[in-house]
Nucleic acid binder design. Structure first.
Length: 949
RNA sequence: GCGGGGAUAGUCAAGUGGUCAAAGACGCAAGAUUCAGGCUCUUGUCUCGCAGGAGUGCAGGGGUUCGACUCCCCUUCCCCGCACCA
């Protein structure tokens, strides 16, 4: 059955579609428009199956809407903003062997490699590939409207400039200062994916406490400033590098690596001299609050590159401190080694200052002993620290030795205490990574406070309120569970940096050192699609796209005359742009993977609300799960990403689309399986064969009316599934269910295929057109002999008049009886392999149907009620038994009458005969027989007696 | 840790208080067709059963109910996000 050549058919129709320009959306006021969009594709690699999954959803919906008569607008652009593309170019330029190998493995030919030093070339290279892949995949895109972000496409850059000038004018862009994880080598913030170590680690603010020492301060850092009441000594790493430095006019003693951090955190630092930690050992400093002098002691657990390299010791509550102190007590050589007396630390006593239910007086001591921790370098010490911290934070209370803070819960003290300490000038603060972060370039990162960075004020409560409101009142979210994620994101969102200093992008017009970053130049570009056709066709330059023009088109904030004057464009052309925008906007539908809810998709809502006038805001969003291939999660690091091109080449577009549509829906992850795709391919070939070579009769029989009735439900279900982005369910109802209906049809009708059979098959093709459009076109041409395109056919509508519930129930009865016969047959056949001689079927007595109909009225006491009926009472015991059974099994019901059952089974006698190869099949009323099995008959479940040869 | 989504037969999945031993798909097995293979078709696919039955079962544990995959509580595991990055 290989008369259907998918590859040839697909290429043919793609060519014809392009030739007829059927996906080019133009203003047509007589039709309703529908704008769908798929995120602009990042051009640092090939389109993979994940893109395929989401883009399939968009295309299927676009095609579905088109069949419903909408003027569908589906444009596609490209993304080049940010570091990765530039990074590749730079690494290739440097001859980085790893990068070159990766590119070669992904199929970039040797001849290209030299050109890969140019980011423009890279993005172009992948753009051409991606466009080809999308086309081969059968996407119904209007290619006249494409663009690339960044200055690689100056008109688009102009649009971004206008967008940001507008946002700034409206007060949504502000200067701000913010701590970021910083790489001093790369001179840029280090994002999660740029880290060798420390994924997910974020800045944490430590409190610095100033302990008077000599003519300055020794400055330890802590997350637990409240423990200052229990401080007993200070820890310094004797081998570490320290400095004496002037910090904001004061003299501080801190570790050497602290200097850069303080500088990057907006402190003025001047190093006076450098020295080894050893120099401090044995001296004393003054503990504020407690107002006593404490000793400075050696500790190897102190790391100079963590915070300030100075640690205050609270041995009663901090396991590290306790272990280090115990070391000094038990190993005098650790002191004598530095020229101190062996008993130098002997006089230090633990000071308990937090009382916690379930913990003893000195929790650190207890836990160290319990866990059997031997040295201060034991990794379990960290675990112990966490445990105590959690308990003390949640249920600890400050003890009476904590002055005015006595009795306050630890969880509540921080805020006032820090305020008080700051007021007394005892403290300062410092940002540090929660745990070490190493950049891809191998540099250990620290926190820098970026000054004068540009932020979008997503934290603005009024803006949030508008977003919440719009989401709640106007937006449809698929699947419904995703809505909560949007609500959560809106609540959680804060001001977000919208520009960086490196990478590709559009410079901020008023501060061109800063470049608009990727999540910020991809929020409202769908509006640019509406005018992109004209921009592209007329090769408009940035000068021809002044703010006034955009203000006029998109915001009604400038007049046509102003726009004309500033742009120098023809009035008519400007009007045309305006018309395109007004006609095609708002964006009706957008789809993406669910991970983008937390940034891009929500920004998309926010910025539309900010920039455009009412009535131009997003309406529907679909957020789908991640896709796995053959059960494996795809990830770039695991190197198992599969390109869309690969599967399209292997299976063809329709089968690939089918496989993707069928592999998942909704919020949970999807799993793409080759076996499903192969199977889909075979089914299509079969359907093609049947429709082109099959013989159909014109005679309409009961089974034809039955399948037409079924078909109406299939149509309604499938339409509903498409509307709700459930492609898998759409295939289930519109493809597999119909095929199964057809199987039943064939089984019942023998070899004859009547008009219902053909109608069902053709309807199946119509229902599947959004998913397998090339196949549908081929059927349309070869079977329907149509001159128009299948993708312009109207989507089927259910015809209520064709629905015949009684007929469906009768067929169901016939089927149930078949299954019962088979069950009995199999149970017996196991022991005696005999052929069937006779099947007797007994239809239940009339009174039973009456019982059912009485029960349908839900009487309080079924038995009492039925016994009021003369005909039922006559059945006596059997009636009571039947009623009891019904009460046990309330779900059971059958609405067919005795007469209808008899008629249905009579119609199916030939079928049973064929099916079971029985010599004789008879049906009769149970009342007319005295066979024991006749008494087993019930409505919907006739009695069955089998006789063997 | 926090917020959200999940866990159903060999696999993917439907099912949100009662014909549920659980749709559908895939896989697998047997039979038909075929010189053979493939395709296709039919049947089967938790266990037991000499008549349509019974048992076990929907991550684990407990509860509500005449009745629970479905409702409530606890536990375990998986996925997404927790930002300045595509």
């Amino acid at each position: 059955m290989n008369e259907y050549d998918a590859f040839a058919v697909e290429a043919k129709w793609q060519k014809r579609w392009a030739k007829a320009k059927i996906y080019e959306a133009n203003v047509d006021q007589s039709r309703k428009k529908f704008l769908v969009s798929f995120p602009i594709v990042y051009l640092n690699g090939k389109i993979h199956v994940g893109h395929g999954y989401t883009s399939m959803k968009v295309d299927v919906y676009a095609r579905y809407k088109r069949m419903q008569g909408y003027n569908v607008f589906f444009a596609q652009g490209w993304h080049a903003t940010g570091q990765p593309i530039q990074g590749v170019a730079e690494r290739v330029k440097k001859g980085d062997p790893v990068q070159i190998r990766i590119l070669k493995q992904s199929g970039v030919p040797e001849s290209e490699m030299k050109k890969f030093t140019d980011p423009l070339h890279i993005s172009n290279y992948y753009k051409i590939l991606a466009k080809k892949t999308f086309t081969k995949f059968g996407m119904s895109i209007d290619w006249r409207r494409e663009f690339v972000t960044t200055t690689l496409c100056p008109p688009f850059s102009r649009f971004i400039e206008w967008q940001y000038e507008t946002l700034r004018k409206l007060g949504y862009v502000k200067k701000g200062t913010h701590p970021v994880v910083w790489c001093s080598h790369c001179q840029s913030p280090t994002g999660d994916h740029d880290r060798l170590k420390g994924e997910g680690v974020s800045p944490v603010e430590f409190i610095l406490l100033k302990f008077p020492f000599e003519d300055g301060y020794l400055v330890p850092a802590t997350l637990r400033p409240e423990t200052i009441f229990g401080v007993t000594n200070m820890w310094i790493n004797p081998d570490g590098d320290y400095v004496e430095a002037e910090v904001d006019g004061e003299k501080w003693f801190v570790s050497e690596p602290t200097v850069l951090k303080l500088e990057d955190q907006l402190h003025k630092v001047k190093v006076i001299r450098k020295f080894k930690g050893l120099e401090l050992i044995g001296k004393t400093c003054h503990a504020p609050i407690r107002e006593v002098d404490i000793k400075i002691l050696p500790a190897t657990f102190v790391e100079v590159d963590h915070t300030t390299g100075v640690v205050m010791s609270v041995p009663s509550h901090a396991p590290f401190d306790y272990v280090a102190l115990r070391d000094l007590w038990t190993k005098p050589e650790m002191l004598t080694k530095y020229g101190l007396p062996g008993d130098f630390a002997a006089d230090i006593q633990l000071i308990s200052m937090i009382k916690t239910e379930g913990l003893g007086e000195h929790p650190a001591k207890d836990i160290i002993e319990k866990m059997g921790i031997q040295t201060q370098n034991d990794p379990k010490t960290e675990e112990a620290t966490q445990e105590i911290y959690k308990k003390e934070f949640h249920s600890g209370v400050m003890r009476e030795n904590c002055g005015k803070y006595a009795g306050i819960k630890v969880s509540e003290i921080k805020e006032h205490l820090i305020k008080d300490l700051k007021a007394q000038k005892i403290s300062s603060s410092m940002w540090e990574t929660a745990s070490p972060v190493i950049c891809r370039c191998q540099t250990k990162n620290h926190i820098k406070i970026l000054k004068d960075q540009w932020f979008i004020t997503y934290g603005n409560e009024k803006w949030k309120q508008r977003a919440r409101n719009h989401l709640a009142k106007k937006m449809t979210i698929y699947p419904p569970e995703a809505r909560q994620s949007f609500e959560y994101t809106i609540d959680w969102l804060q001001d977000k940096a919208c520009a960086r200093k490196s990478g590709l992008g559009t410079p901020l017009p008023w501060d061109p050192e800063w470049i608009v970053e990727t999540l910020s130049d991809s929020t409202i570009y769908m509006a640019f699609y509406t005018i992109a056709r004209i921009v592209n066709e007329h090769n408009l330059t940035p000068e021809q796209l002044p703010n006034e023009l955009f203000d006029y088109i998109f915001r009604n904030k400038a007049t046509l005359e102003e726009a004309q004057k500033k742009s120098g464009l023809d009035m008519a052309l400007i009007k045309e742009m305006k018309e395109e925008f007004e006609y095609f906007y708002p964006p009706d539908y957008r789809a993406s993977a669910k991970e983008l809810i937390f940034n891009h998709l929500t920004f998309y809502i926010f910025q539309h609300l900010a920039v455009f006038p009412k009535g131009h805001y997003p309406l529907e969003i679909e957020a789908n799960g991640m896709i796995q291939v053959e059960g494996d999660k795809m990830s770039k690091s695991a190197g198992n990403t599969i390109s869309l091109d690969e599967i399209v080449q292997r299976f063809g577009a329709d089968a690939s689309r089918f496989g993707l549509a069928y592999c998942g829906e909704g919020y949970t992850d999807a799993s793409f399986r080759y076996a499903d795709v192969e199977a889909a391919k075979k089914r299509m070939s079969m359907i093609f064969h049947e429709l082109t070579k099959g013989k159909f009769s014109d005679e309409e029989r009961q089974i034809d009316r039955w399948i037409l009735s079924k078909l109406q439900t299939r149509i309604a279900d499938t339409a509903n599934h498409y509307q709700n982005q459930r492609t898998r369910s759409a295939i289930s109802s519109g493809f597999f269910d119909i095929l199964n209906d057809l199987k039943w049809y064939e089984a019942r009708s023998g070899a004859i295929r009547g008009p219902g059979y053909r109608t069902a098959l053709l309807t199946l093709v119509d229902l599947m057109t959004p998913i397998i459009p090339h196949f549908a076109e081929e059927i349309n041409e070869k079977v329907r002999k149509a001159k128009t395109f299948a993708c312009h056919r109207p989507f089927p509508k259910p015809n209520k008049r064709l629905i015949n519930k009684k007929l469906e129930e009768e067929e169901r009865l016939i089927r149930n009886v078949r299954e019962d016969i088979e069950g009995i047959f199999n149970a017996i056949k196991k022991r005696q392999k005999k052929a069937l001689e006779k099947i007797e079927i007994f239809i239940a007595p009339k009174w039973m149907y009456k019982v059912l109909s009485i029960r349908r009225q839900k009487p309080d006491n079924l038995i009492a009620k039925i016994m009021q009926e003369e005909t039922i009472r006559k059945a006596g015991n059997a009636a009571a038994k039947y009623a009891q059974k019904l009460m046990k099994n309330p779900g059971y019901d059958s609405t067919l009458s005795q007469r209808a059952e008899l008629a249905a089974i009579t119609d199916a006698l030939e079928y049973y005969k064929r099916e079971f190869k029985a010599k004789e099949v008879v049906v009769m009323l149970a009342s007319k027989s005295d066979h024991a099995k006749a008494r087993a008959a019930e409505p919907g479940r006739p009695g069955i007696a089998l006789t063997f040869m």
